[in-house]
Computed example of a mutant assay.
Amino acid sequence: MQFEWVIKYWPLLLDGAYQTVALLVISVVFGFLLAIGLAFAQVSGGPVARNLSRAYCTFFRGTPLLIQLWLLYYGVGSLLPMIPGIRQSFMWPVLREGFFFAAVSFTLNYAAYEAEVLRGALLAVPKGELEAGRAVGMSPWTLVRRIWLPRAIRIALPTIAGEIVLQLKSTPLAFTVTVMDLYAVAYKVRQDTLLVYEPLLVVTLFYVFLTLLITRCFKGIEAQVPIRR
């Protein structure tokens, strides 16, 4: 095993790790917010909202993430420059980068999976707690904010942790749209040095470390907020 290359490539490795973590955080945060709306649309929305939410979740859960990413990057991405004025806009430096399309694709995909998790959790909240909230005069928004959504998130915490780990393992796909994440750096190291196993081992250890960190964080949260029976 040879690891002398780490001294030369450590700035790239750090930048790749940053890109990986940034993709994970962006997609999880914004995907979770979108998933809340999708879940409530299925549980308590009207027929139109419910069917649109189901169609969204079915599409993004039923197609490979790689295809979704390529459709955005090679499809939408190739059409953006044709829009008048887009190249001169302040958004062009962002829109021309593969990172933007990877973040959007990962966010939309994560939201679809998380929406199904939250939908089940919302339905699992005891109806007696919701009725008690209504009985004391809570408005629908207050009921959601103080009882329904917090209880649903607590119920779904173990599954949410698992979904975040799965999302982490999806980030190397960003390499296919020119994003220099950690896997892309490992691929460059392999091309430059002809070393195969050592760069992949470094990437593996990084992902294992992040997985352990995510798991420990969620276990700590679960211990601090026990479920009330």
Rank of each mutant, 00 (worst) to 15 (best):
S139Q: 08
F106V: 06
L173Y: 02
V6E: 03
Y56I: 13
V28R: 04
L23M: 13
R146T: 11
L66A: 08
V208K: 06
S53N: 08
L34N: 12
K188Y: 09
Y207L: 03
V144Y: 13
L23Q: 08
P11R: 09
L122F: 04
L143T: 02
F3R: 13
G75T: 07
W148D: 06
D15S: 15
Y197R: 13
S105H: 04
G75R: 08
N51E: 14
P81T: 05
F209H: 07
V179D: 05
M138Y: 09
Y113M: 07
L123D: 10
A115R: 12
V125H: 04
Y74H: 06
P226L: 06
L201C: 09
Y197S: 13
R145K: 10
G137T: 02
L34P: 11
E198V: 10
A102E: 03
A41E: 07
I26L: 12
I221R: 12
I36Q: 10
K169V: 00
Y56Q: 11
Q19T: 06
E114W: 05
W148C: 01
L205F: 14
R61A: 03
Q19I: 09
A17F: 11
Q68E: 12
C57G: 05
F100Y: 06
L182W: 00
S139P: 04
K169S: 05
Q2K: 14
C217F: 15
D15L: 15
V125R: 06
L182V: 02
R151M: 12
E131Q: 13
Y110N: 15
Y113C: 08
G77M: 00
S89A: 02
A17V: 11
F32S: 15
L122E: 03
V29D: 00
P172N: 05
L210E: 01
G128K: 06
P11S: 08
A115I: 02
W70N: 07
G162V: 02
I153R: 00
Y183H: 12
I36H: 13
L69T: 04
L118G: 03
L123H: 08
V117P: 05
L195P: 05
G137F: 01
